[in-house]
Amino acid sequence: LQTLTLFAMAGELHSYSEVCEALSTLEVALGFLAMTGGEPLMQLSCYLEEVLQMENQMAPHIFKALSMCCLKHCVALWQLLISLKSENMLRLKRDPFVGVSEKYKQVLGEDEHRLLTGFFSKNSADAFLLEMHEFLVLVLQKPNALDTFRPDWLKDTLFSYMERKDLDIPRDVEELFPVEILLCHYVEAWKFIVAFKQERGQRQ
């Protein structure tokens, strides 16, 4: 899914409740697609309207936002919406990562702040940030995550996760993402990066 499409879609969803509504609608669609399959190039809005007959259950602008995607984009869209949900929870002073072990929530020091600021000042890495969040939600949030993922790991762990999904790791991320950021910093690093990018976006 193109980054511009992602930003356009994010711009259509203005609140936590709207993101949650879009996400729950998408998860219904994904559930049906997992069971019955679908035509990859079919517009998601057509699928919701004609196959699932859900159009009347959605606010028009949410339906419009979902109409920007085809069925083949559903997983990428889920990745975006689940991240937007967490970002909105942060804005509402709520913790999106209640189930994540405290061992992955170590506070960042000045050095880590400086390294992350330096990296994300030079590299947008939006897709990588979405992968970071997905790994956090799908992997580190599991109760037994510590059995597999040691808090003193990070870069190689995340890259291996992406490679198992047959994703190319952006060269700038592979070469320049600071090795000093470890899994023990993971939650706070993600929060810091999101806040940094939002602040930079407001200044532009």
Results as ranks from 00 to 15, higher is better:
residue 81 L to S: 04
residue 130 L to I: 07
residue 11 G to Q: 04
residue 142 K to W: 00
residue 56 N to G: 15
residue 3 T to G: 03
residue 61 H to W: 10
residue 94 R to Y: 11
residue 149 F to M: 03
residue 126 D to Q: 02
residue 150 R to K: 15
residue 12 E to F: 07
residue 37 G to Q: 11
residue 65 A to P: 04
residue 69 C to M: 13
residue 85 K to E: 09
residue 127 A to R: 12
residue 42 M to D: 06
residue 35 M to I: 11
residue 78 W to Q: 12
residue 122 K to I: 11
residue 52 L to A: 09
residue 29 A to D: 05
residue 105 K to C: 10
residue 131 E to M: 11
residue 22 A to R: 00
residue 106 Q to G: 08
residue 182 L to N: 09
residue 190 W to V: 13
residue 46 C to S: 15
residue 90 L to N: 04
residue 128 F to S: 03
residue 199 E to G: 15
residue 8 A to K: 01
residue 189 A to C: 08
residue 19 V to I: 15
residue 9 M to Q: 11
residue 204 Q to D: 11
residue 146 L to Q: 05
residue 25 T to E: 12
residue 100 V to L: 05
residue 66 L to K: 01
residue 88 N to W: 09
residue 48 L to N: 07
residue 93 K to G: 10
residue 85 K to M: 07
residue 174 E to L: 12
residue 90 L to P: 02
residue 122 K to Y: 15
residue 19 V to M: 13
residue 73 H to D: 07
residue 51 V to L: 07
residue 96 P to V: 02
residue 185 H to L: 12
residue 98 V to L: 10
residue 57 Q to L: 15
residue 137 V to W: 14
residue 10 A to W: 03
residue 106 Q to F: 06
residue 25 T to P: 13
residue 185 H to E: 11
residue 22 A to Y: 01
residue 133 H to M: 03
residue 72 K to R: 12
residue 85 K to N: 05
residue 124 S to A: 14
residue 127 A to S: 09
residue 76 A to R: 04
residue 33 L to G: 10
residue 77 L to S: 09
residue 113 H to C: 01
residue 188 E to R: 13
residue 151 P to F: 03
residue 39 E to T: 05
residue 128 F to G: 00
residue 61 H to M: 12
residue 96 P to K: 08
residue 180 E to W: 00
residue 26 L to N: 15
residue 26 L to D: 13
residue 68 M to H: 08
residue 53 Q to W: 03
residue 12 E to A: 15
residue 68 M to R: 06
residue 63 F to N: 08
residue 55 E to Q: 08
residue 131 E to V: 05
residue 62 I to H: 07
residue 31 G to V: 02
residue 194 V to T: 08
residue 92 L to F: 08
residue 180 E to I: 02
residue 178 P to Y: 14
residue 129 L to M: 11
residue 147 D to I: 01
residue 58 M to A: 03
residue 16 Y to G: 05
residue 29 A to M: 07
residue 101 S to I: 01
residue 128 F to H: 04
residue 149 F to K: 03
residue 168 D to N: 14
residue 141 Q to R: 02
residue 198 Q to P: 01
residue 59 A to M: 12
residue 57 Q to F: 15
residue 154 L to D: 05
residue 145 A to T: 00
residue 41 L to N: 14
residue 156 D to Y: 02
residue 146 L to Y: 02
residue 90 L to H: 04
residue 180 E to T: 02
